[in-house]
């Protein structure tokens, strides 16, 4: 059997707040196979975003181990880590906050191509146009400022930036939560298409079990930094075992049990 794409074990992160320490993430273990979508769900403050930031090496864990593509990801640093980041990308919840307010669409997409030496300077405009088309946007948007396009278009640009370096795994932290329902459906479809065609794995963070059910293969439900239950996404959502799982299912608005 081949080793998983990402394997996390015993991940722990504590924050000190007002004298006492709280474990935002407490001994969490999971793994993701190539081309698979693993969803992380849980109430607010259960540690979902913290896990995303730990996996992306934006914060350092207090304990635990992260293996990415068979490599000790926590041992990497400096230029090696920056190079490896090409394979592990992220899409944020608020697409406006995720981009430099002074940037244009073209610059946002130019950065990863330049940093990872994917295309020469003269070749990049063509690559940027291709990326925009890949996510269903017109290449005419390239010269626009980030704040001059709609929220849905912006999230597509964020996805275009994430796939620019041909990653194996994209972490999506509430990536569709801020979008209108109609736009949300389109973005989810885009994500499914990309996954099918490029075999990208997703770590999909969402509090919306309806969305999770539509896109995820497996689901991990978190509660106060620990794993409450996990398993096949539909199985867990249709028959949650943990108290928190049941509460989340009850709270989910008109859960679509038929699936996509």
């Amino acid at each position: 059997m081949s080793s998983p794409l990402l394997s996390v074990s015993g991940l722990t992160k504590r924050y000190r707040r007002g004298g006492k320490t709280i474990a935002a993430v407490d001994n969490v273990s999971f793994h993701i196979e190539p081309g698979e979508t693993l969803a992380l769900a849980g109430p607010s403050g259960s540690g979902k975003s913290t896990i995303a930031r730990l996996v992306l090496r934006l914060v350092q864990p207090d304990a635990g181990d992260i293996q990415f593509k068979g490599e000790d990801f926590l041992a990497l640093g400096g230029a090696t880590l920056r190079a490896r980041r090409a394979r592990l990308q992220m899409v944020f919840q608020d697409p406006l906050a995720a981009f430099n307010p002074r940037a244009t669409v073209a610059r946002v997409l130019d950065d990863p191509l330049r940093i990872h030496g994917i295309a020469s300077r003269s070749e990049r405009p063509r690559r940027i146009a291709a990326l925009l088309e890949r996510v269903g946007l017109s290449p005419d948007l390239a010269p626009r400022a980030i704040h001059e396009i709609s929220g849905g278009q912006r999230q597509r640009v964020a996805i275009a930036r994430a796939i620019a370096t041909k990653p194996s795994l994209i972490v999506l932290d509430e990536a569709v939560s801020a979008l209108d329902v109609s736009v949300r459906g389109q973005i989810l479809r885009l994500l499914l298409d990309l996954q099918r065609e490029e075999r990208i794995a997703y770590l999909f963070i969402s509090h919306d079990l309806g969305v999770v059910r539509a896109i995820a293969h497996r689901l991990v439900i978190l509660d106060a930094g620990t794993i409450a239950e996990s398993g096949d996404a539909r199985t867990v959502i249709d028959a949650p075992q943990s108290a928190i799982g049941k509460a989340l299912v009850v709270a989910a608005p008109k859960l679509d049990r038929t699936g996509p």
């Binding site: 992306l56 980041r85 992220m90 944020f92 981009f99 430099n100 950065d111 990863p112 940093i115």
Partner: peptide, 25 residues
């Protein structure tokens, strides 16, 4: 802010993040 985390995620060098992403803002 998120866009700085975004710059780190795409592998930008810290000096470039400091002087090209943060300083102008």
């Amino acid at each position: 802010r998120d866009f700085v985390a975004g710059a780190r995620v795409i592998g930008m060098h810290p000096l470039e993040i400091a002087f090209r992403e943060i300083l102008p803002n």
